[in-house]
Amino acid sequence: TTYYDVLGVKPNATQEELKKAYRKLALKYHPDKNPNEGEKFKQISQAYEVLSDAKKRELYDKGGE
């Protein structure tokens, strides 16, 4: 599973699309609303952290993490 899959976006997604997808999923899986989905929330946050940063995203796209 790639970070793009976690957020449900395509690899060519814009920053705005990433932000929108992250917010939607973060609300859905937030531990306050969904106590059993803490791990999913962490995955979503990690994916967004990497993909929202241009340098980290470039490194990730080249095969790094």
Rank of each mutant, 00 (worst) to 15 (best):
T1P: 14
T1Y: 14
T2A: 07
T2D: 11
T2Q: 07
Y3F: 08
V6Y: 07
L7Y: 00
L7R: 00
G8F: 05
G8D: 05
G8N: 08
G8M: 07
V9S: 02
V9R: 00
P11M: 10
N12K: 05
N12T: 15
A13Q: 02
A13E: 01
T14G: 04
T14H: 03
T14F: 01
T14L: 04
T14V: 03
Q15P: 12
Q15G: 08
E16V: 07
E16S: 10
E16K: 10
E17W: 03
L18D: 00
L18Y: 01
L18K: 00
K19H: 13
K19S: 14
K20V: 14
K20C: 12
A21D: 01
R23W: 14
R23K: 13
K24N: 13
K24C: 11
L25D: 01
A26H: 09
A26W: 15
A26S: 11
K28L: 15
Y29P: 01
Y29D: 02
H30D: 12
P31V: 06
P31I: 05
D32Y: 07
K33C: 14
K33T: 13
K33V: 15
N34H: 09
N34Q: 07
P35N: 09
N36V: 10
N36F: 11
N36A: 13
E37H: 15
E37I: 06
E37Q: 11
E39M: 08
E39F: 08
E39L: 09
K40D: 04
K40Q: 07
K40G: 04
K40N: 08
K40R: 12
K40S: 06
K40I: 12
F41G: 02
F41C: 05
K42Q: 13
K42D: 08
Q43I: 11
I44V: 08
Q46L: 14
A47L: 01
A47K: 00
A47F: 02
A47S: 03
E49T: 07
E49S: 10
L51N: 00
L51P: 01
S52P: 00
S52N: 06
S52E: 03
S52H: 07
D53A: 04
A54L: 12
K55L: 09
K55T: 14
K55P: 05
K56M: 12
K56I: 05
K56F: 06
K56E: 08
K56P: 02
R57K: 06
R57Q: 03
R57C: 03
E58Y: 09
E58C: 10
E58A: 11
L59Q: 13
Y60D: 03
Y60N: 03
D61T: 02
K62N: 12
K62A: 11
K62S: 12
G63E: 12
G63C: 14
G63P: 07
G64M: 15
E65H: 12
E65F: 14
